[in-house]
């Protein structure tokens, strides 16, 4: 009986340690833009039965994220109805699309630099070519040890760049939360570059307004600046940055020109093996 109780206590302690330890992230994950290696990208995946499989999925996701950040078309519209009872979201056709041929190119040129495992996610840092990551960046830190960053409530601004913050609630698989936060930030970036608004106000016996927002933008060379996880309110935050010259309005272009992104030029510079396209 004593042994059983002892075993249960030990198991509970291990579980508690595991849960607490599972929420630690490497420092580079919080502050990716501070890395000396350029064009780094992070891939996420849910845990698999075999750890190798999960890491492989995370790498694949990283290659796709590279393609998304290198160049993404965001277009569509959203309609809202505003009346006495409040604003109601009616419909959305906003969608993202990216050039999937870049995924294969990234798979040939990007190599894993660091990998971390948390409770329900595996994360992989990928970089083109060789990238030396210092021990200080590999150190693990709990999100609650970092005070809530200012950028979560007040996006930075400077003359040369657009900044956008993306948020996501907590999903069962943490990878889904980080991916949604990144996607929301990309949408916010696109809306900064160009948004067309049409509103129709009707004032008769009751006031009402229909608002339609349209976005048609191509984003180039977007980079992740910072990430933060709010354990108290259970939200995930991602801060993205893009140079203002890299935002292109695609609305009036029947066949948008394919601009060469910074990442593309790096890949095609021939300094890495197998970059021919």
């Amino acid at each position: 009986m004593f042994n059983l109780t002892k075993n249960i206590v030990v198991a509970l302690l291990l579980l508690l340690w595991g849960v607490a330890h599972a929420q630690e992230y490497p420092l580079w994950f919080y502050n990716q833009s501070a890395l000396s290696c350029s064009n780094t990208v992070v891939g996420y995946a849910a845990p698999s039965f075999l750890a190798d499989s999960a890491a492989s999925y995370a790498r694949q996701n990283g290659y796709e994220n590279f393609a998304r950040f290198a160049s993404t078309d965001i277009s569509g519209n959203e309609t809202y109805w505003n009346s006495e009872i409040g604003m109601i979201w009616l419909q959305s056709t906003v969608a993202e699309s990216f050039d999937s041929t870049r995924v294969a190119t990234a798979a040939r040129t990007f190599t894993p630099v660091d990998t971390f495992v948390v409770e329900k996610m595996i994360g992989v840092l990928l970089a083109p070519g060789q990238c030396q990551l210092s021990q200080s960046f590999r150190a693990l830190q709990y999100p609650h040890e970092i005070s809530k960053p200012l950028w979560t409530v007040q996006a930075p601004s400077d003359a040369a760049n657009y900044y956008a913050v993306g948020r996501s609630p907590t999903y069962y698989y943490e990878a889904s939360s980080w991916q949604e936060a990144e996607q929301k930030a990309r949408l916010a970036l696109a809306r900064q570059v160009y948004t067309k608004i049409e509103t129709l106000q009707k004032i008769s016996y009751a006031s009402q307004e229909i608002t339609r927002e349209e976005v048609a933008v191509r984003l180039h060379d977007v980079e992740v600046v910072s990430r933060w996880r709010d354990l108290k309110d259970r939200f995930f935050y991602v801060l993205l940055r893009m140079r203002k010259v890299n935002g292109m309005i695609t609305e009036s272009l029947a066949e948008p020109k394919r601009a060469v992104s910074q990442q593309d030029s790096i890949l095609s510079a021939g300094q890495y093996e197998g970059t021919g396209r």
Binding site: V153, Q154, A155, S157, Y162, Y163, A164, V165, A188, R191, Q192, V193, Y194, T195, K196, I197, E198, T199, I249
Partner: peptide
């Protein structure tokens, strides 16, 4: 008209 370029959320809470 209402084509906004550069509109953004300066503060959010």
């Amino acid at each position: 008209s209402t084509q906004l370029r550069g509109s953004r959320a300066k503060k959010t809470t």
